[in-house]
Amino acid sequence: MTATAAVTDDLDNPYALSHLDALESEAVHIFREVAGEFERPVILFSGGKDSIVMLHLALKAFAPAAVPFSLLHVDTGHNFPEVLDYRDRTVERHGLRLHVASVQDFIDRGELRERPDGTRNPLQTVPLLDAIEKSRFDAVFGGGRRDEEKARAKERVFSLRDEFGGWDPRRQRPELWQLYNGKHSPGEHVRVFPLSNWTELDVWQYIAREKIELPAIYYAHEREVFARNGMWLAPGEWGGPKDGESLETRQVRYRTVGDMSCTGAVDSDADTIEAVITEIAASRLTERGATRADDKMSEAAMEDRKREGYF
């Protein structure tokens, strides 16, 4: 059979899965596998697009029953208000239980110290590990994707973390034929990444297909921003703008959301999901590479944080 004939046969086969169907099926399988293997899983949920898609998949995986996991958000205190509003509305709409680990609480108790640059994203590790230990979570779902950043490209779907929450790439297990090994020793836990094989474009195409609501900041809007290190940052209590940095109103949108101090906006007129998909398809930079200052601290910034227990 020629290659052309094979493609034609696939198109004519009503049972052939589209690439989005295949990705969805894989993610649903992962959620159900974790439900069967672990006692106390939790879903990291920030109100960002990847965690929103991850929750949508979890809802589909167990419908019509309720999702058998609670949610966990590590709140830096510098989150976008639109995203926090979305988070709370989503939790209420689906009747979910939300755990919030607050970076501010750790700062107030003297267990963490503010960074000179004002960013709190790297400070999330300690509250995250504290919440995992206190609630005895043995599996933690994250929305990380391999296309985001080179350290995340090393991750398995099931990522073993030691008793200190640390990640060692040499301890990663093979996952042939979608066989996942959740075995772990007391004190250890497993991070689980159902979106590992998705790309940013896949996520947006799935959002369009499923008609998933997102926070409005993912679409083009006018916002006051200032320039720092080649990015447009939003002003806030975290320390921006500084002397010599002037505010200006621009039409922007966010490709990823996190701590306001390190998440940059991009100039954009993509105010519909179709326009966003067109924009992303033409981009040659990942969303983290283009808009996350915390990943630009060093060549191995993400890997260093992951070894300490970061997402």
Results as ranks from 00 to 15, higher is better:
Q205K: 14
Q205A: 07
Q205P: 05
Q205N: 13
Y206T: 03
Y206W: 13
Y206G: 01
Y206I: 09
I207W: 01
I207S: 02
I207C: 04
I207M: 05
A208K: 11
R209Q: 15
R209F: 09
R209T: 13
E210L: 01
K211Q: 12
K211R: 12
K211L: 03
I212E: 05
E213V: 10
E213N: 07
E213P: 04
E213I: 05
E213Q: 06
E213G: 08
L214M: 15
L214F: 02
L214P: 02
P215V: 10
P215E: 12
A216M: 05
A216D: 09
I217C: 12
I217V: 12
Y218H: 02
Y219G: 12
H221S: 13
H221Y: 02
E222V: 06
E222K: 11
E222C: 05
E222Y: 07
R223Q: 15
E224C: 11
E224P: 11
V225G: 10
F226C: 12
F226V: 14
A227C: 06
A227F: 12
R228N: 08
R228D: 14
N229F: 06
N229M: 08
G230A: 10
G230I: 09
G230Y: 09
W232E: 09
W232N: 10
W232G: 07
L233N: 04
A234E: 14
A234P: 11
P235L: 01
P235R: 03
G236V: 01
G236A: 02
G236R: 00
G236Y: 00
E237W: 00
W238N: 04
W238I: 03
W238M: 03
W238P: 02
W238T: 07
G239V: 04
G239C: 06
G239P: 04
G239S: 07
G240R: 11
P241M: 00
P241R: 02
K242A: 15
K242R: 15
D243A: 13
D243H: 07
D243T: 10
G244P: 13
G244A: 02
G244N: 09
E245T: 13
E245P: 12
E245H: 14
S246I: 09
S246R: 14
S246A: 14
L247P: 07
L247H: 08
E248A: 11
E248H: 11
E248T: 12
R250W: 04
R250V: 14
R250A: 11
Q251S: 08
Q251I: 05
Q251D: 01
Q251K: 13
V252Q: 05
R253F: 12
R253Q: 06
Y254F: 15
R255W: 10
R255K: 08
T256G: 10
T256C: 11
T256I: 13
V257A: 03
V257L: 04
G258K: 06
G258H: 04
G258T: 03
G258N: 03
G258W: 02
G258C: 03
D259V: 01
D259W: 00
M260L: 14
S261T: 02
S261Q: 06
S261E: 07
C262A: 14
T263H: 09
T263Y: 05
G264A: 04
G264W: 00
G264N: 01
G264M: 01
A265I: 03
